[in-house]
Simulated scan of single mutants.
Amino acid sequence: MSISSPETTPETTTVAERVYQALRSQIGSGELEPGAKVTERGMAERLGVSPTPVREAIRRLELDGLVERVGPRTTLVARIEEDASHDLAEVEVALRGLAARFAARHATDDELDELDRLLDEADDLVILIRARHRDGKPVEKHADRFLDVLGRFNEQVNAAAHNPVLLRLLEQSRSLTRSRQREISRAHLLAGDEFGADRYAEHRALVIALRGRDAVEAERIVTEHAARGLLDLRREQ
């Protein structure tokens, strides 16, 4: 596994950020198991970067409680107890709701129009996926597109909050990585039980609340939706 290093711009994520996200993903997916040793040199070689960004990423993972230093040069993937994992999920749900509250206050008309466009695209994909399941046809490509669209929708809602500090906290509080969430949802979509597809209609109500600048309703919709979604996903762990 290698992490590319494009020319840095103000909009480009730093190498350290990409290393951090890669390690978070590997810890969340179980690729790096609890108790596994995480070394600067070893991870630098594994990810194809220098040790410096790995050092910074490990510091951030320590603050997140995902790794723990047990010696001057020894860092291990932390063993997160079930209670702590549940607490983290509760924090994530609350932050998602708070992001929706901010979005109701600060979303631009263009951002709201993009949310509607994404849901229109999702509508078409749901119809197509259901029809292909009925006809016994493969749905992999369309399921991936559907998940991509919903991912962009969620990112757009968060971006519409226009609160970088909140978004950093939300990223740090993820109880499941994006890749793990997608893996679980994709498996259900391919199986034909429409895991997640039957709930995304709530997103229409969210956009209505955002357009009405109803921060309380927007927060309620997202909080309830996120709580149910995380509960379902965590049952798959």
Results as ranks from 00 to 15, higher is better:
R55D: 05
I58F: 08
I58D: 03
R60L: 12
L61E: 07
L61P: 01
L61T: 07
L63P: 00
D64K: 09
G65Y: 07
E68R: 14
E68I: 11
V70I: 14
G71I: 03
G71P: 01
G71C: 04
R73A: 14
T74G: 08
T74N: 10
T74M: 13
T74D: 12
T75F: 01
L76R: 14
V77R: 07
V77Q: 07
A78I: 03
I80S: 11
I80H: 08
I80V: 14
D83G: 05
A84E: 13
A84H: 10
A84F: 06
S85P: 00
A89M: 12
A89Y: 01
A89W: 04
E90T: 06
E90N: 14
A94C: 03
R96Y: 07
R96M: 14
G97N: 06
F102A: 13
A103V: 02
A104S: 11
R105K: 14
H106R: 15
D110M: 04
E111T: 07
E114K: 11
D116P: 01
D116K: 10
R117D: 12
L118H: 03
L118P: 01
L118R: 13
L119R: 10
D123T: 00
D123L: 08
D124G: 15
V126R: 15
V126W: 03
I127Y: 10
L128K: 13
A131F: 02
H133C: 02
G136D: 06
K137H: 09
K137R: 15
P138Y: 00
V139Q: 04
V139N: 03
V139R: 04
H142F: 13
H142I: 06
R145T: 12
L147K: 05
V149K: 02
V149I: 15
L150I: 15
G151K: 08
G151V: 07
R152P: 01
E155R: 14
E155C: 01
V157A: 08
N158Q: 14
A159E: 13
A160C: 08
H162Q: 15
P164K: 12
V165D: 13
V165G: 13
R168W: 00
R168G: 03
R168E: 15
L169M: 14
L170H: 11
E171T: 12
Q172S: 13
S173C: 04
R174G: 07
S175Y: 02
L176V: 04
T177A: 06
S179E: 15
Q181C: 12
R182F: 01
R182M: 05
R182H: 09
R182P: 00
E183L: 03
I184P: 03
S185R: 13
L190F: 02
G192N: 06
E194V: 02
F195Q: 11
A197L: 15
A197I: 09
A201Y: 02
